[in-house]
């Protein structure tokens, strides 16, 4: 269980989060959604300790601010939104950086296994800087996976914190990565992802937190949060949630009346 209570963050004097509470369970994919500037990334960065915040963030029973960095690194890994690497590392060298957090060195082949899982088998010898944006994002995901490879460790469930993990991927790779995250959660790990794509969120998330204007607007199961009223209010445009007859998840469309005028 990860719980953040009454989180307040100000950036350069401007309050960005105004008392947000957020909960996520191990075994679930929990999505954080909301319009641009609603504070999604800020909430994630507060929970990963990158930003000073007021309030408390607990991982299990412990306050994360009190857990030593190396111990936290064994329990949770973080995928940033975009990563520029300073020097010409190969993809293999980047992925192996994730393994330095482990107390006992994982097997060498772990890096290649992780690359295969994100669809980058055979990319080991390529230079990271020469990959496309989507390939870089998946290589970083492979690095993050090697850090918390087993979803449940001796100390309890492990966590993935992901900032827009599929934002620069094509649709097939978006589905692959979401499948992978769903599998991680199904095996007992916790997944918290900032998401832009509401349809993918509806398809894959077990729980959704909707932020708007630095506050939590709604949190709960997708069917509770992703409704016509909540979405339209949060995003400030008319949105309709539909259900296809043969699909298990709902899908969203902007209200067609808007185009029709």
């Amino acid at each position: 269980m990860l719980s953040a209570t009454d989180i307040e963050v100000s950036l350069a004097g401007t309050p960005v989060l105004k008392g947000v509470s957020f909960h996520a369970q191990a075994g679930h994919v929990t999505a954080i959604v909301g319009p641009n500037g609603s504070g999604k990334t800020t909430l994630l960065r507060a929970m990963t300790g990158d930003l000073p915040y007021r309030g408390t963030v607990r991982l299990g029973e412990a306050d994360i601010a009190a857990i030593p960095g190396w111990q936290l690194a064994a329990q949770r890994a973080v995928l940033p939104q975009a990563s520029r690497i300073a020097f010409p590392f190969t993809v293999l060298e980047i992925v192996r950086l994730g393994m330095m957090a482990s107390a006992e060195p994982p097997p060498e082949r772990r890096a290649s296994e992780a690359l295969a899982r994100v669809g980058l088998a055979g990319f080991e010898g390529r230079f990271y800087q020469e990959l496309s944006g989507g390939e870089q994002q998946r290589a970083q995901l492979a690095r993050v996976l090697t850090q918390v490879w087993d979803p449940v460790g001796p100390e309890g469930p492990r966590w993935l914190f992901l900032d827009e993990p599929v934002s620069s991927l094509d649709i097939a790779h978006q589905l692959d990565v979401m499948d992978l995250l769903g599998d991680y959660a199904a095996r007992g790990g916790g997944v918290i992802a900032v998401m832009h794509d509401l349809n993918l969120t509806a398809m894959y998330a077990d729980a959704v937190a909707m932020l708007a204007g630095g506050r939590t607007m709604a949190q709960g199961a997708p069917s509770v949060v992703l409704t016509d009223t909540t979405l339209s209010a949060a995003y400030g445009c008319d949105l309709r949630v539909n259900a296809a007859p043969d699909a298990p998840a709902t899908y969203l469309l902007p209200h067609m009346a808007r185009r029709a005028g």
Binding site: T48, G49, D50, A74, V78, P80, G98, M100, A101
Partner: peptide
């Protein structure tokens, strides 16, 4: 040496790897 390798990812990602 190891910490500088992690730092190549950026300061926040290095901290997430447990580097002080």
């Amino acid at each position: 040496a190891r910490s500088l390798n992690g730092l190549a990812l950026g300061e926040a990602p290095a901290a997430h790897l447990g580097i002080p």
